[in-house]
Design a protein around this nucleic acid. Structure first.
Lengths: 288, 288
DNA sequence: TAGTGGTCTAGACCACGAT
DNA sequence: TCGTGGTCTAGACCACTAT
């Protein structure tokens, strides 16, 4: 019961996709795409992802046992488990005691960068990203900004308001607030630069974690003018706080999308639940 | 069932919250709340979560080194790393080589159940969940439903349309589609039952993984009538496909929320990126 | 009962950050 | 340089699923 592999891909067979990536072999890696960075388990994970995407196990099919994978790749079971853990977090496979892992879907997963940076997201779609800075302000942070950026009351921030375009079409208005030490870098960025995030990263600012809140809001005068809709129209809103690897907040942004241009997708499971549904108290205002 | 953890945390101080949970000590566990299920690393994780929520390390503060935690709890470093991995996935702490972990936030994390079940979510908020079944249909699945539920073309499904209320206020319209084997269970549920999900779980249906897509849509006639808004008004939409531990789809649901009643939050990081932003092609209709 | 993934241990070495 | 987390190994035992 070794080689089962249900959807055999090509005559070469699925087993070919499984390479031994031992240290002696050097930077070898499997597949026709980019070499994968350093660690063993990442290489294994990349190879498995590729095999799954190629349909080697079918949708709903079962993966080989951990022990078998360990032998195939010539690594320990622990390393295989690390690789499979990554696939599970991406929602590609299930896992439960007693049974082999099952392929859940073949959806390619976006990188973290594609989430934090509009530009790299657009590029990954083959769209031409664009942006126009509408306003830059330096001013004292309001209380919410202080909390989000973990600043002392009265500290100053830099606010940047931009329209973002996809192949020329305005789809989003972005209001980003930066702490001063980042804001000063941002202020030096040319007005016609496409990606602020990428330029910041070139200057050593690392985005490592982000919290996103997604809901709906009404367009204000700026939004309406920049997106070509009416004030009061509903927009899909994403508010995002990003931090660097040390946990220091580097950006607090509110992005408002024209309806129909974007959707957010999340995978979660019993083991990993990073998504939450948040209640918002009814306005419960006066008598209206 | 229970759940969580938050609540008061005595004045006993942080060091006390770290308990040795060695095997000899039996089912002991730390904290003033519910005992945590079986495994060691879950107990350790629960204890650390509690300590963080109590502010034992402050927001932005640093956790003890892995080696020290291992000694305190009397477990191996691997087990500590498993526990810390869970906290990292929840967005509670960062981690990077060379430095101790940093506390990112103290936001309590929702369980998976609170995401898949409106009822258990509402209860966790202290709100009174309610629902009224508006329509139940058994009919052939359309192509999209076949794909989502992984059914053969022409297979039948059960559709349930319900209004969901929070303390009496209608906030959401839910359209759930079930494969027949589940739908038959659903059809036997009394019309006034509050939670379909919980009843299904009592009958052995396990929800283990879910994919969520969040965007914006316009209210149709049903929505408008049930939510008390106008047709065409914007609603926050969540579409969700849930699967059981074997990877078999058990539910495909579309939930439409009145604006201002709910927001979705997600945490992701360089290591774990379960959130994605999805493009929707412009209608690119006729000549407009 | 046999096979599978889940948990846990004990140790090793390395890459990185702070000092 | 030293402490820290990241990776990897080799083995053990257990809980669960399928047969």
């Amino acid at each position: 019961m070794t080689s089962d592999v249900r959807g055999r891909v090509g005559s070469s067979g699925a087993s070919v996709r499984h390479r031994v990536v031992s240290a002696e072999e050097g930077p070898l890696q499997g597949g026709s795409t980019e070499p994968v960075k350093g660690t063993l388990y990442r290489k294994v994970a990349a190879d498995l992802r590729e095999a799954i995407a190629a349909g080697a196990y079918g949708s709903g099919g079962r993966l080989p046992a951990e022990a078998e994978l360990a032998e195939r790749y010539g690594v320990s079971r622990g390393t295989i488990r690390q690789a499979l853990g990554a696939l599970r977090a991406d929602g590609l496979v299930t896992s439960r005691r007693g049974t082999r892992r099952v392929v859940l879907g073949t959806t390619p997963v976006q990188s973290f960068a594609e989430l934090v940076s509009f530009t790299s997201w657009a590029r990954s779609l083959g769209e031409e990203p664009g942006g126009r800075v509408e306003r830059v302000e330096r001013r004292p942070a309001d209380p919410r900004e202080c909390e989000k950026l973990r600043l002392d009351p009265g500290a100053e921030v830099v606010l940047v308001l931009r329209v973002r375009t996809l192949s020329g079409r305005a789809v989003m208005v972005e209001r980003s607030v930066y702490p001063l030490w980042i804001g000063e870098l941002v202020a030096r960025i040319p007005a016609d630069a496409v990606s602020h995030t990428e330029l910041l990263q070139e200057q050593g600012v690392v985005f490592a974690d982000a919290d996103h809140t997604i809901d709906l809001t009404a367009a204000d005068a700026d939004d309406a003018r920049l997106l070509g809709c009416e004030p009061g129209d509903a927009l899909l809103r994403e508010r995002r706080r990003s931090t660097d690897p040390g946990g220091t907040p580097v950006e607090w942004s509110e992005d408002r999308y024209l309806p129909g241009t974007v959707a957010f997708t999340v995978h979660n499971s019993l083991a990993t639940s990073a998504l939450a549904r948040r209640h918002r108290r009814p306005p419960r205002a006066e008598g209206a």
